[in-house]
Amino acid sequence: VDYGCLPEEVQEHFQDCGTVNRVTILTDFYGNPKGYAYVEFHEAEAVQNALQLNDTELHGRPLKVQNEPFYNLHSLLF
Rank of each mutant, 00 (worst) to 15 (best):
V1G: 12
C5M: 10
V20F: 11
D16L: 07
Y38E: 10
L53G: 02
E43S: 05
G4S: 09
G60F: 00
V10Y: 10
C17N: 08
Q52R: 15
Y36R: 04
H13F: 15
R22Q: 14
A37T: 09
E43M: 06
R22W: 06
E45C: 07
D2I: 07
N32V: 11
E40F: 06
L26P: 03
Q11G: 10
G31S: 15
A44D: 04
E9H: 00
Y30C: 11
N67C: 00
Q11L: 13
V47R: 14
N21A: 14
V47M: 11
D28T: 07
E45H: 15
V20L: 06
F41P: 06
L76A: 05
N72W: 04
L76Q: 09
D16G: 07
F70L: 08
N67I: 04
L26A: 00
T27D: 00
G35F: 12
G31Q: 11
C17V: 01
Q48C: 01
V65L: 03
G31T: 14
L73Y: 09
T56V: 00
G18F: 07
N67T: 02
Q52C: 14
F78K: 06
L53A: 04
G35L: 14
T19R: 14
L26F: 04
E12T: 14
H59D: 08
K34R: 08
N67A: 09
E8P: 07
N32W: 04
Y30K: 15
A37I: 09
D16P: 00
V47N: 08
K34G: 08
F78C: 07
H13Q: 12
K34A: 04
C17I: 00
L77D: 06
Y36C: 03
C5N: 09
N32M: 13
V1I: 11
L63K: 11
V23Q: 13
V47T: 12
E12G: 03
Q52I: 03
L26C: 13
F14R: 10
G18E: 02
F70D: 04
P7I: 09
G35V: 05
H13T: 03
Q15T: 09
V1M: 11
K34L: 15
N49W: 10
A37E: 03
V20S: 05
E57S: 08
G4Y: 06
N21Q: 14
Q66H: 04
